[in-house]
Computed example of a mutant assay.
Amino acid sequence: MAEHVVVVGAGYAGLAAAKLAARWTGSRVTLVNERDRFVERVRLHELAAGRRLRDLPLRDLLAGSGVELVVDRVTGIDLAAREVRLTGGALGYDRLVYALGSHADPGVPGAAGHAHSVSTLEDAERLAAALAGARAVAVVGGGLTGIEAAAELAEARPDLAVALVTGGGFGEALSVKGRRHVRRVFDRLGVTVHDGAGVTAVDADGVALGTGGRVAADAVVWAAGFAVPDLARAAGLAVDAAGRVLVDHTLTSVSHPDVLAIGDAAVIRRRDGLELRMACATGLPTAQKAVRALARRRRGAEPGPLDFRYVNQCVSLGRRDGLIQFVDADDRPREFVLTGRLAARYKELVVRGTVLVERYPAIPAG
């Protein structure tokens, strides 16, 4: 009887892993996801700004792959019994691929009740509704998610006063040229930047700053960090302090060899010890690596270490501008960037290409 592989989570990493497992290992594969649609998470700031996204039914993306889709929510994992607990029952497995991803981490008082995010489809839809009658919005977080959200909202809604608030320096992950371009775009779009001003609380009227001031807002977007579900820790998998699964160079759990963990849900390191950041750009290649390692072991071969090199960071700045920040292999910014409409087209091609890889996941993803 063929081994039963269950993949939980149909994000960028999980969907690709399920299709590759069916293709490369000959296993019976079941994919579990709480909704029947694939969500382009990297576009959710566009949805929040009022743009409609493509409808991508999972059954269409899985057509011809042999993967069985179960639409249900995972409530727990019984590692001893090798069962995934769902709201509608339980599902047994021989091997589990854990790919439940991450979500926004509202880490200050009031953020959970008053802030919105762009980390899930439902979050982005609620934010869009909250912005319908808003006159001012504060985006908390100076990373790429916050920068993209602030620019998108400012371009789509010229009537909206947009402020970006960050505890660190503005655009710290970017090169000098990259930061200058983003600042020019923000100036053109009218986005106000409050850097070096950590948020200490969120309420219905905006955010309180550690410097003692306030930024008034009708809506707050929280883009200041991500967390993972507590299911792995609760199940008894070895995890780090944040609850991400600890894995070896083949993406196999260090505590349970019948479990693989990929994407944002895992602590993934290259052979030199560099930890990969949470991103779609790392999720797809690690899914390929995990399933390829599984297939090699099936053939009696020993998988090699993860070999991953960063190339660039793609940042949308509305629909007509962008920044392609080229980086070295270790993700350090270089003083080489693409900007403007060319960068916007580049980013759009990358995002569309990501869905192409989900349809044909054997295409190299990085």
Rank of each mutant, 00 (worst) to 15 (best):
A2L: 13
V6T: 14
V6H: 14
L15S: 14
K19L: 11
A22N: 08
A22E: 01
W24S: 11
T25W: 01
R28V: 11
N33M: 11
N33C: 13
E34G: 00
H45E: 09
R51Q: 14
R54M: 12
D55V: 15
R59P: 00
D60S: 12
A63C: 00
S65D: 08
G66S: 13
G66N: 09
E68F: 02
V70W: 06
D72V: 05
A81N: 06
R85D: 12
G88C: 04
G88T: 14
L96V: 13
V97S: 11
V108S: 06
P109D: 03
G110V: 12
A112K: 11
G113W: 11
H116T: 02
H116A: 04
L121R: 05
E122Y: 09
R126P: 00
A130R: 14
A130E: 03
A132D: 04
R135K: 09
A138P: 05
L144E: 04
G146R: 01
A156G: 14
A156Q: 15
P158K: 06
L164I: 10
L164W: 07
V165C: 09
G167L: 05
L174S: 00
R180N: 14
R183D: 15
V185I: 12
F186V: 00
L189E: 08
V191A: 07
T192L: 11
G196T: 06
T200P: 03
V202S: 12
G212E: 03
G212K: 04
G213E: 02
V220T: 15
V221H: 03
V221N: 03
V228W: 01
V228A: 06
A235P: 00
A235S: 10
A238D: 05
A241P: 04
A242Q: 13
T252Q: 15
P257Y: 06
L260G: 02
D264L: 12
A266F: 09
R271T: 14
E275L: 09
L276M: 04
L276E: 03
M278A: 10
A281V: 02
R292E: 15
R297W: 06
A301W: 14
G304P: 13
F308T: 03
F308K: 06
V311M: 11
V311K: 10
V315L: 15
G318Y: 10
R320P: 00
G322A: 08
Q325Y: 10
D331M: 07
D331L: 01
F336N: 02
V337I: 15
V337G: 04
G340L: 07
R341V: 13
A344E: 05
Y346A: 02
V350L: 14
G353K: 08
V355W: 11
V357T: 15
R359T: 10
P361Q: 13
A365V: 09
A365Q: 05
